[in-house]
Structures are given as structure tokens and as C-alpha cells.
């Protein structure tokens, strides 16, 4: 198998690697880029646990090939806020108990952030649909939605003041 040289950006930092053509983005992130916050739940593209943003769009990193991301920008949950800080959406998950075991949380946060960036006034039912590709086995989703709505409302207040 021929190896490929790739270069990408992970949370704003340059990463380069030599990869097999069948290596997944998930594996690349976890093994070459220190991205242990990206979790493997199924490897089938079903559970959304492995969600990352690729040039700002959510993808299942388990089904994305590493070679596909050459020259592109990946955001994981650790790219949501500056190091040492929590993004307000992460704070909302904390305050509203949107995380129990926490295994789904990285993917959940990225999907929610992406969706609200595009639909800042999304209502609860739209948010519910937006999360349909991210499974959670612990929370029943109710508190996750509470957290996301609280973040949406706080953000709107801020922008009104601006």
C-alpha cells in the first residue's frame, strides 16, 4: 500500500503525517495528532460519537479517510475554546447536566455548536432534529437540549446588547 503525505490543521495547529490510504481520520487524530478527545463508539457512522468539524461541517471521523483531509481544517471539542477555558456551550452542559458518562459529549457539543452557528434562533424541535445523528445512552437527551437552549438564549441576549 502506498503511503500518503498529508498536512492539515487541527484546532488551528499544523499537523503533518504519513498515512495509509485506508486510515480513518479518527485514527489519525487519536494516534498522530494527540486528539484523544475524539471517541470511537461504533466505527459504522451510526452513533456520532466521533463527530468532528471538517472545515466547519460535522463529519463522522470514523468513516472519513485521513487522505481526504489533506489541506483542510479539523476542529475537535478541544478547539471550541482557548486552552484553559471552557466555551459557553461547554459551561451550559456543565450547569444543566448535559453530560453524564461524557462519552457522547465531544460529538454532541460540536454538532450543537455547528447548528446554532448556522441557525442562531433554532427552536427546541429543530435542535432535537439536529442532534439525531449523535446518540446518547445516558441522559435521554432532555438535559442536553436544556443546555443547548440555555446557551442559545444567553448568546442572543449578548448579541442584543451588542
Amino acid at each position: 500500500m502506498s503511503k500518503h503525505e498529508i498536512a492539515l490543521e487541527v484546532n488551528g495547529r499544523p499537523v503533518s503525517a504519513t498515512v495509509d490510504p485506508n486510515m480513518s481520520l479518527l485514527e489519525l487524530l487519536r494516534t498522530e495528532a494527540g486528539g484523544l478527545e475524539v471517541k470511537l463508539g461504533c466505527g459504522e457512522g451510526v452513533c456520532g460519537t466521533c463527530t468532528v468539524l471538517l472545515d466547519g461541517e460535522p463529519v463522522n471521523s470514523c468513516l472519513t479517510f485521513a487522505v481526504q483531509v489533506d489541506g483542510r481544517a479539523v476542529t475537535t471539542v478541544r478547539g471550541l475554546a482557548a486552552e484553559g477555558e471552557l466555551h459557553p456551550l461547554q459551561e451550559a452542559f456543565l450547569t444543566h447536566a448535559g453530560s453524564q458518562c461524557g462519552f457522547c459529549t465531544p460529538g454532541m457539543l460540536l454538532t450543537a455548536k455547528w447548528y446554532l452557528d448556522r441557525h442562531p434562533r433554532a427552536d427546541r424541535e429543530e435542535l432535537r432534529s439536529a442532534l439525531s445523528g449523535n446518540f446518547c445512552r445516558c441522559t435521554g437527551y432532555t438535559k442536553i437540549l436544556d443546555a443547548i437552549e440555555a446557551y442559545r438564549d444567553a448568546r442572543q441576549e449578548v448579541s442584543v446588547v451588542d
Binding site: 475537535t76 471539542v77 453530560s99
Partner: peptide, 18 residues
């Protein structure tokens, strides 16, 4: 009052080592 035990802080940060 909300009290966040550190494991929950690490979970939302993505830094809890599973």
C-alpha cells in the same frame, strides 16, 4: 446550588481519560 465535580468539568472539556 450547582456544584461541578471535576470529572464533569473534564468531560465537557473533552479531557477525561477513558
Amino acid at each position: 446550588a450547582p456544584v461541578h465535580h471535576r470529572d464533569f468539568v473534564e468531560k465537557v472539556a473533552g479531557t477525561l481519560p477513558y
